[in-house]
């Protein structure tokens, strides 16, 4: 490496370190916010559940059905209450700055290196050190820039010590390498933290919404039946069943605080293997092959800083249409395909 490249590498580690410090500070804020908001969501869920009384004076069958729904919600609230336990404490790398060499420390090291060797006797052989070696010398000014125009006297003095101590360039290179190792360690830490963060939302938070979403889907069928028999009791039941949306809304806001968004493709959309995962295939002659017949579970997206396209954290699970050719003339009644994953 040339001296310019070595200096550039050292400078680059300083810039990268500042970025890493900011990144870690930003992660600390995120994690603090997560811990606060987790507490908030657990309390909110519990409060909503505690206030979830069944409408009065229902017939026994309806009351049993609503109680059955309430049992499902109780389980979702229980799952939410475990979130804090599922989030693993972070071991922040508190001492990472100790091993990182700043420009000031570099200058001091260069000075010390020179001072340590300046008392040593100089012999004639050492004085013959090549000009190339002498050019490796570095000014000990705080900016730690390579001295570009040395006087011949300076060059001689610098060269005298050359064979007995590390050249300044060697010292800078050594420090740049130390810094790169620190930076690599910090990158490993932030990568692992990001993985933990994504995994927590995907595997712990979103399944709480999945359960509520399934409950909402089952209720939708019931609601359409109730709407057909228009009466005052049914209206109270329909109003009660709105509870799923309130829980989902609460959890969706929690997700959005951390730039996560639910991804729910339209039924009838064309299957997209980049963002959807099929868990079943059905025949439906009113639809084309590879159209989405049903959304079983929504996906999860993360909006990334400085990037337009969000990152897919988990695909949406869908049921996809595939019609067998020989049955094209059939009535179009939906037939599940028995092949599972």
């Amino acid at each position: 490496m040339t001296k310019e490249e070595v200096m550039q590498a050292f400078e680059q580690t300083q810039n990268s370190f500042k970025q890493k410090e900011q990144e870690i500070a930003s992660w600390k804020n995120q994690v603090n916010l997560l811990e606060q908001k987790m507490d908030g969501i657990v309390n909110a869920f519990q409060a909503m559940y505690d206030g979830l009384d069944l409408p009065a004076d229902l017939d026994e069958e309806t009351e049993n059905q609503l109680q059955n729904r309430k049992d499902g919600i109780r389980l979702s609230v229980k799952s939410a209450s475990r979130l804090e336990r599922k989030w693993k404490d972070i071991q922040w790398p508190e001492d990472f700055a100790e091993n990182f060499v700043t420009p000031e420390e570099l200058v001091n090291e260069i000075k010390a290196n020179k001072e340590q060797h300046s008392d040593k006797p100089k012999n004639s052989e050492q004085a013959e050190t090549s000009t190339e070696q002498k050019q490796d010398e570095i000014n000990t000014e705080p900016a730690a820039e390579v001295e570009k125009e040395e006087t011949s006297e300076q060059k001689n003095q610098a060269g005298l010590a050359e064979t007995e101590r590390k050249s300044d360039i060697e010292l800078v290179q050594e420090k740049a390498e130390i810094n790169e190792k620190v930076l690599d360690g910090l990158t490993d830490f932030t990568n692992s933290l990001q993985k933990q963060f994504y995994s927590f939302f995907e595997k712990a938070v979103v399944p709480v919404i999945d359960g509520l979403y399934s409950g909402k889907k089952f209720s939708a069928e019931w609601i359409s039946q109730l709407q057909e028999q228009n009466n005052e009791e049914n209206e109270r039941v329909i109003e009660w069943l709105d509870v799923y949306d309130r829980f989902i809304q609460e959890m969706t806001e929690f997700l959005e605080t951390f730039n996560f968004h639910l991804y729910e493709p339209e039924e009838g959309a064309l299957f997209d293997e980049e963002t959807m995962e099929p868990i079943g295939v059905v025949e439906n002659h009113e639809m084309e092959d590879e159209q989405v017949a049903e959304i079983v579970r929504f996906g999860l997206l993360s909006k990334q800083r400085d990037k337009e396209e969000p990152l897919l954290i988990r695909p949406a699970q869908v049921i996809v249409v595939k019609n067998r050719e020989e049955q094209q003339e059939d009535t179009g009644e939906e037939q599940p395909n028995e092949s599972g994953q």
Partner: peptide, 10 residues
């Protein structure tokens, strides 16, 4: 992406 096609296009 290919794995997600196993079921619909085996």
């Amino acid at each position: 992406a290919a794995k997600r096609r196993i079921l619909i296009d085996p």
